[in-house]
Computed example of a mutant assay.
Amino acid sequence: MIHEVDEVLKGLLTGGALTGTGVEVAFEAPTRDWAARRNAPTIDAYLYDIREDVRRRERGAVAVRDDRGVVLKRRQPPRWFRLSYLVTAWTKRPQDEHRLLSAVLATLLPREVLPPEELTGSLAALGLTIPLTVAGLHTEARSLAEIWSALDGELKPSLDVVITAPFPAFPEYDAGPPVIEGAGVRVRGMDGTLDGSPVRHHSPRDLAGRGRAETVSE
């Protein structure tokens, strides 16, 4: 699932205001050594945090249906996880990096919700929309300064991009076959014989005194 979110984000970062710019998109940790090897304009989306969004956790089971609407399987609702990316721009001049970050903002701000048709693999198969936020309030336990310190890098402008994605919960359970036969009630008389036709929707009072009722399949 995580690699599929990477591909979705990469597709977004190479489109919109960045279409045709030829800017590379990387997912590497922006360490000093990595930065020293950059020789082309690059946008780096470093995945630094993964946390479950417990507010979205659901109970019960979800029905998996075919094209006719028949229930084939039942499974647990997906669990939702917040994938936080540290997005930075790398060029020779700070002014160019600021332009790239502006282009990233212009590209991602209109994409608050990603529909299933823009997703791939198991994400698309779930048929759910996934939310995206950019440059929101940083609420994770680790501050950005701590992240840069752990990377042994120099603090620089960055955008916090969070994609909240569903992760399928396993296992799945096969559903029983659909009921295709109806059930009726026939009344057995005192002599032990059945009435000739099914009797439906009788109340106990209606059947009182008519003998013993038996349930049969039509």
Rank of each mutant, 00 (worst) to 15 (best):
M1C: 04
E4W: 00
E4A: 14
D6K: 14
V8E: 03
V8F: 11
L9E: 03
K10E: 06
K10R: 15
L12W: 06
G16K: 10
A17N: 03
L18R: 14
T19L: 15
G20Q: 04
V23N: 08
V23W: 07
E24F: 05
E28Y: 08
T31V: 05
R32H: 10
D33F: 12
A36G: 01
A36P: 00
R37L: 13
N39E: 14
A40W: 12
T42E: 06
D44R: 13
A45I: 10
A45W: 06
Y48N: 04
D49F: 07
I50N: 02
E52G: 07
V54H: 09
V54R: 13
E58V: 04
R59P: 00
G60D: 01
A61Y: 02
V62A: 01
R65I: 02
D67E: 11
R68A: 01
G69M: 00
V70K: 00
L72F: 02
K73A: 07
R74N: 05
R75T: 05
Q76R: 12
P78Y: 06
W80N: 00
F81E: 04
S84D: 07
S84C: 09
Y85D: 09
L86P: 01
V87L: 13
T88H: 11
W90L: 15
P94L: 14
Q95V: 15
Q95N: 13
D96H: 15
D96V: 09
E97T: 09
E97M: 12
E97V: 08
R99K: 15
L101H: 11
S102V: 12
A103M: 13
A103R: 14
A106I: 03
P110A: 12
P110H: 13
P110Y: 13
E112Y: 11
E112D: 11
E118C: 01
L119H: 02
T120L: 12
L123N: 06
A124K: 13
A124V: 01
A125W: 01
L126S: 05
I130L: 07
I130W: 00
L132C: 06
L132W: 02
L132R: 05
T133E: 10
T133M: 09
T133S: 14
V134G: 05
H138F: 03
H138R: 15
H138K: 11
A141P: 00
R142P: 00
R142F: 11
S143L: 10
A145W: 04
E146L: 08
S149D: 15
K156D: 12
K156F: 01
K156N: 14
P157L: 14
P157V: 14
L159V: 09
V162S: 06
P166V: 02
P166G: 04
P166D: 02
P168F: 04
A169K: 01
P171L: 10
Y173A: 10
Y173H: 08
A175Q: 07
P177A: 02
P178R: 07
P178N: 00
E181N: 01
G184P: 00
V187A: 06
V187Q: 09
R188Y: 06
D191Q: 10
D191W: 07
D191E: 08
G192H: 01
L194C: 05
G196I: 01
P198G: 11
P198D: 01
H201L: 13
H201Y: 04
H202E: 07
P204G: 03
P204Y: 08
L207E: 06
L207D: 02
L207F: 10
G209T: 06
G211D: 03
G211I: 07
A213M: 04
E214H: 09
T215E: 04
T215H: 03
E218N: 03
